[in-house]
């Protein structure tokens, strides 16, 4: 099966408008489960090109305290992989917004890789990001994701050497997730000094059809402008959005913030 059209088409559209894709994260269950769809709508109306939905897990080792709290609240509301699939099906009734799931590996392991991939595809998910599944453990997942047309998004970090970047590209599809810095997710005042050199190093190693999106710590329009200028095809904003939702931002206020971030993705001549 081909990679889902929604994701690749979206990158093309965005590219032809001389923009980078804005990928916005929300934990399913935020600010409460009955309102998550409304907030996804707000992200989309503000200009998010791709949405990344968080699947809650008890032990999110790559997440900062803001997102850890969101995982906890979602679990207490009973959110699990099945409620996430249900929400995506609901969303798909009237939206073609590309959807990525961000989930730790254990919920996939529990359901079974094949079953998980099939349900993703049936629900209308376009790709999966698994922060604790490096390529060493990913062979069987890659086969399932390929079979069901899901983008296989792997990470590249400041610690990943060039040879390893090339190996990761062989497993990946859609885009590679370039981790801007050391550590966990989390909003940041300043752009990490590691990110631009990393982007410069990695970009020439990528095959034509593989995009690169930068995440971890992107918080302001200026951060986004800087990484887009350096050649990022996409930017991922997670904790900064989660922080606003946690603080009680209305859908309108969230959309305003997204508009501001989206403005940073436009390439100036």
């Amino acid at each position: 099966m081909m990679l889902t059209q929604r994701l690749s088409k979206r990158f093309e559209e965005v590219h032809s408008r001389r923009e980078a894709a804005l990928i916005g994260y929300i934990m399913v269950g935020e600010p409460e489960f009955s309102r998550t769809l409304e907030y996804i709508g707000a992200l989309e109306s503000g200009g998010v090109d791709i949405v990344e939905l968080g699947v809650p897990f008890t032990d999110p080792i790559a997440d900062d305290p803001i997102l850890q709290a969101a995982h906890g609240r979602a679990l207490r509301q009973g959110v699990n992989v099945h409620t996430v699939f249900q929400l995506v099906r609901e969303l798909r009734k009237n939206s073609e917004l590309p959807v990525l799931l961000m989930t730790y590996y254990n919920p996939i392991c529990r359901l079974g890789e094949e079953s998980f991939a099939r349900r993703c595809s049936e629900a209308g998910v376009d790709g999966v990001i698994i922060p604790d599944l490096p390529i060493e453990e990913a062979a069987s997942w890659v086969n399932q994701a390929r079979k069901y047309g899901l983008a296989r998004i792997f990470f590249v970090t400041p610690e990943t050497d060039n040879e390893r970047v090339k190996r990761i590209c062989e497993y990946a599809s859609g885009f590679v997730y370039l981790v801007s810095r050391y550590g966990t997710t989390g909003p940041s005042e300043t752009l990490a000094p590691t990110v631009l050199p990393l982007l410069e190093r990695v970009k020439p190693l990528l095959p034509e059809d593989l995009k690169v999106a930068v995440g971890f710590g992107l918080t302001t329009r200026a951060h986004i402008e800087a990484v887009v200028r350096a050649g990022a095809d996409g930017v991922i904003v997670a904790s900064a959005l989660a922080a606003r939702i946690t603080e009680g931002a209305s859908p309108e206020a969230l959309a305003d913030y997204v508009r501001e971030l989206k403005a940073g993705t436009r390439r100036t001549v």
Binding site: Y105, P134, E136, P158, E159
Partner: peptide, 19 residues
């Protein structure tokens, strides 16, 4: 290869793999 039969492995974020 880092495994005890089907068990073990390295299910950690990419940033830790080189270490």
């Amino acid at each position: 290869d880092g495994h005890f039969g089907e068990f073990g492995g390295q299910f950690v974020p990419e940033i830790l793999i080189p270490a």
